[in-house]
Design a protein around this nucleic acid. Structure first.
Lengths: 108, 108
DNA sequence: TCGCTACGACGATGATCATCGTACTACGCT
DNA sequence: AGCGTAGTACGATGATCATCGTCGTAGCGA
């Protein structure tokens, strides 16, 4: 037990368009976001099966978290990832939907 | 006269989300786009008064043009810049509006 | 207790990029 | 013709970043 591990997340008001767009400019990170947006909520990092090493995957998830795009919380040794859709919508209305929609025409 | 100078522009169907988002991830380029979106149509590059050297400004305008975000055409020695709003809207609906709206709360 | 799993930290590396200065070109005006 | 203006081309440079491998750590199960 002790203190359960926690991960740093920016507050809603701290979200910067620069950080969000820089994070979303990378194809690998967009892939993660699209996968999360397509109903794969609360997935562990490993479940995404990214074609990169674990170190690189960790890096991408952290960039997304620090940009305020995803929320990460520990569950055992795994980390559950969730899209912070409402935070993003509140701060940058329509942005996430536009990008996910542009990337993944498979939905609908 | 001879052949008037022309500049290379990508076709609508060639627009890639990757190029567009990478271009828009830079604050200086977003500044240009926001300025164009706020009614400053057909402005010459120099009219933007960017806080960078001319070489750098040229670079940014070219990145925007090659990403398909702006249209550039010569008029004398100057270059008139226009937002390709309809092309972007056709390819990535809502994207430009979301970014411009998030960046510039001054409008409205 | 002993692994096994999922992930983070650290340091390195190679690529990309934003920035610059300088030299060059094209066009218009006098 | 000569000059000024607007922008381009060409390196160069310093910073950032995506990627990796290795090692460390926390939790779970046998």
């Amino acid at each position: 037990m002790s203190t359960p591990r926690t991960l740093e997340h920016p507050d809603v008001v701290e979200l910067s368009l620069d950080a969000v767009l820089s994070a979303l400019a990378d194809p690998m990170r967009r892939r993660i976001v699209v996968q999360l947006a397509n109903g794969c909520h609360d997935q562990a990092c490993i479940a995404f099966e990214l074609p990169v090493s674990r170190s690189t995957a960790t890096h991408h998830f952290r960039v997304l978290r620090l940009a305020g795009i995803i929320e990460q919380r520990y569950q055992g040794t795994a980390i559950l990832n969730t899209l912070r859709s409402s935070c993003l919508e509140e701060r940058f209305p329509g942005l996430l939907a536009a990008i996910v929609g542009a990337e993944a025409p498979s939905s609908s």
